[in-house]
Design a binder for these strands. Structure first.
Lengths: 116, 116
DNA sequence: TTTATATTTTACTAACTGGTTAATTAACCA
DNA sequence: TGGTTAATTAACCAGTTAGTAAAATATAAA
């Protein structure tokens, strides 16, 4: 049984699932709404499976409304994954500094503006 | 051939690999240095394979020094993954707001330092 | 009650993952 | 030269993943 962080990252490791999450970020959606953009490329059961991965990772929860299953985002595990990355970002960048690379061109401006 | 973002998240979806990245964040390390903390749980070829996943995702690059293979972090794809998450964070949190949930109980304090 | 819509389940693939042991390559050291 | 250390490769296995087609379930609508 993998840890939560691994479940979350694994769930993110697929463009279909990332797109579904992005759409859910705009609000609740039924399975067929979520599936619509992908039905050119895959069948509905395939989408159901992706959704199941997102559910098992705790990123999405599904309700019931008649024959519909309205899905909504659960941001918490995503926040934990983001935390992990933020927590190590400093070290990566330090590593990059050691190579004298990327930082100037990539992380200026607002990108990771958080701290305090 | 999966996209870079998927490769990156897939590489992160394993605690051994995350630990290796964390160690590399502190500086270069040879394969056996990287392997040391895990040799109670797995063999060296297993570590080599994990390292290969990190290399294929472009997160780690390996040099040569005599019989050693000094590995170092390449933070760039990690930054891209972080960007993706940051970019969608707002939407997740908006979604949470809509439910009036979690934020007060879960993210008070420093975690996702966001507005009042 | 029948029919249509929304979604899931089942059963089946092919490919990938994460691990193993044993053998191999590469470079140093005596 | 022979031996040791560092790391990879090869061959194999069990379990998971991502997809399919076809059947089943659940609810609404006529």
């Amino acid at each position: 049984m993998p840890d939560q962080l691994s479940l979350t990252f694994a769930a993110l490791a697929d463009p279909t699932r990332r797109a579904m999450l992005a759409q859910l970020g705009k609000g609740e959606a039924n399975v067929s709404d979520l599936a619509a953009p992908f039905l050119k490329n895959m069948t509905l059961p395939a989408v159901t499976k992706h959704l199941k991965v997102l559910e098992n990772a705790g990123l999405v929860s599904k309700g019931r409304n008649a024959q519909y299953r309205p899905c909504r985002l659960n941001g918490e595990p995503l926040g934990e994954a983001l935390d992990w990355m933020e927590q190590h970002r400093i070290a990566w960048e330090a590593q990059l500094d050691r190579l004298g690379a990327y930082l100037k061109t990539k992380t200026q401006g607002t990108r990771h503006g958080r701290k305090k």
